[in-house]
């Protein structure tokens, strides 16, 4: 579904991604793990077109993704739940959801998706006419994920969805991700909760200092000495 080859990305003159290659197949959950500052967010931003790579190719469903302007990419079925949620604080909960609905497919599924989300997250339904900025951190994260789903993506990408949340809310976030996986959605997950992510994902990549240093099935990754020592603290 997505194939990235020899991606190089830099901010101004500082290169942060070196020759990264990876792929995501339809129906898979793929985790991207690595320490802070390794370049995980940079990769997601490049996929969404918020950054332009120095070189490399990104092929998505047989199309050259780099040929599409950034605002067209969500319409191709790419959806990013960005780090720090990035909700529109002065839009209502409902407006925050509606704003993601742009393609005919998304419009068609809108009611179904809305109902499902409100059933899953009854708190959001209660507060749908409230401004998003007045929600609690956990509710905001739920809303951000819900917004990411409402565009009816083929590939959902999440950047640290559990960042700054209480453990019980983190559980809830992962419950939702599991549910999405069961529904067959393709997911690309960037997370700091390495163990949880690996238990959820089918495959994983390890990114260190801008280079992909390891790729494997999640099961093997969990057994890998380097991963265990550095990321699982075992």
């Amino acid at each position: 579904m997505l194939e990235v080859k020899n991606l190089n990305v830099s901010y101004e003159k500082m290169q942060v991604i070196w020759d990264a290659s990876f792929e995501i197949h339809s129906g898979e959950v793929v985790a991207l793990i690595g320490p802070n500052g390794a370049g995980k967010t940079t990769i997601l931003k490049t996929l969404m077109g918020l950054l332009t790579p120095l070189s490399g190719s990104i092929s998505y469903m047989g199309k050259d993704l780099l040929a599409y302007p950034n605002y067209e990419r969500p319409k191709l079925g790419l959806s990013l739940v960005p780090e720090g949620r990035r909700l529109f604080p002065k839009l209502t909960v409902l407006e925050n959801l509606q704003i993601a609905v742009r393609t005919p497919e998304a419009k068609e599924k809108r009611k179904e998706n809305m109902d499902w989300i409100f059933e899953l997250l009854p708190k959001l339904a209660e507060r749908k006419n409230q401004l998003a900025g007045t929600l609690s951190g956990g509710e905001q994260q739920m809303l951000a994920i819900a917004r990411g789903i409402l565009s009816k993506p083929r590939l959902l990408m999440l950047d640290e969805p559990s960042l700054g949340l209480a453990p019980i809310i983190v559980e809830q976030v992962f419950d939702i991700l599991r549910e999405l996986k069961e529904r067959g959605l393709t997911i690309f997950l960037v997370e700091q909760y390495v163990e949880k992510s690996l238990l959820l994902a089918d495959r994983a990549y390890l990114l260190e200092e801008g280079k992909i240093v390891l790729k494997d099935d999640s099961k093997n990754m969990l057994k890998n000495d380097h991963v265990r020592k550095v990321y699982l603290g075992i």
């Binding site: 918020l50 302007p69 605002y71 319409k75 959806s79 960005p82 990035r86 565009s151």
Partner: peptide
């Protein structure tokens, strides 16, 4: 930037 992620030009 978040607006672009929503597909807004």
């Amino acid at each position: 930037e978040a607006a672009v992620l929503m597909g807004i030009n």
